[in-house]
């Protein structure tokens, strides 16, 4: 059987004496769109930080397409085809929108640390960056400093940087946080479009986006996965209702 895109086995993380992630087991199949929901402080973003290598795990194991990644630094995990976005927009503020996207393409295009290939002659690379800007609807902002974009545009750029490198597993951390209703709808369509054929794992609070996008949903409460399954199962799960959804509808 094909190894899952992402496989977490009994992952634990403690900061000092406080255990934030208390034994998470999670398998994400290839090509699946998987949403993680849960109340604030449940450890969803921490889980992302562990998977992407931002923090080391305390115990357990994480595998990407069957390869252990839990001891690797972020750049090595990224090179294996896992990419992530950030809840707090994390872009290159003083560079132009175009440069932001192009930087995100560099490693996967094989340029590494080259200081001998002039970027202006790399036609394929530049064309690829332009195409992505079109897809993100940011072509008109091409030469603007990224820090000057509107919030929604910065979020779109954030997603663009995340998927630019051609990662097969994409982690999106609250991609629609702080967006208006129409912006959220637009972002949802964008996410659906750019993650076509990829494995998507996302943390999201907007239930419309979650139930609209996800093939499967996991509910994280207090550092543990209390339920995992299809959207309709999760909607009807008694434990979930009590622990999470119930709290919202009350």
């Amino acid at each position: 059987m094909e190894a899952p895109a992402l496989s977490l086995k009994n992952v634990r993380k403690n900061f000092g004496p406080v255990e934030i992630i208390r034994g998470v087991d999670l398998d994400i199949a290839r090509g699946e769109r998987h949403a993680i929901i849960g109340p604030n402080g449940a450890g969803k973003t921490t889980l992302f930080n562990l998977i992407s290598g931002r923090f080391p795990i305390s115990s357990g194991s994480i595998a990407l397409n069957g390869t252990r990644i839990d001891q690797l630094p972020p750049q090595n995990i990224s090179r294996l085809g896992l990419s992530r976005s950030f809840q707090i927009t994390s872009i290159f503020h003083r560079m132009t929108v175009f440069e932001n996207i192009r930087c995100a393409l560099l490693w996967s295009s094989g340029y590494r640390y080259s200081f001998w290939s002039p970027l202006w002659t790399q036609k394929a690379l530049n064309r690829q960056a332009e195409q992505l800007l079109d897809e993100l609807n940011l072509a008109s902002r091409r030469d603007l400093q990224a820090g000057l974009l509107s919030y929604a545009e910065q979020r779109a750029l954030e997603i663009g940087i995340t998927i630019a490198g051609g990662a097969t597993v994409v982690l999106l951390d609250e991609p629609t946080a702080g967006m208006s209703h129409s912006e959220t709808e637009y972002a949802q369509a964008l996410i659906r479009r750019v993650t076509e054929g990829k494995t998507l794992l996302m943390v999201e609070h907007d239930m419309g986006v979650v139930f609209g996008l996800a093939d499967r949903i996991s509910v994280v409460v207090y550092g543990q996965v209390i339920a995992s399954g299809k959207p309709e199962d999760i909607r009807n799960d008694r434990a979930v209702k009590e622990a999470y959804l119930g709290a919202l509808t009350e």
Binding site: R54, C103, S108, Y113, W120
Partner: peptide, 23 residues
């Protein structure tokens, strides 16, 4: 105007993000 020059700017602006791009 080379990849290294571009990534120098990138690590200046946001070194952590550069790591998640493979650098």
């Amino acid at each position: 105007k080379t990849p290294l020059g571009a990534m120098a700017n990138a690590t200046r602006d946001n070194f952590e993000r550069a790591r998640f791009m493979g650098y």
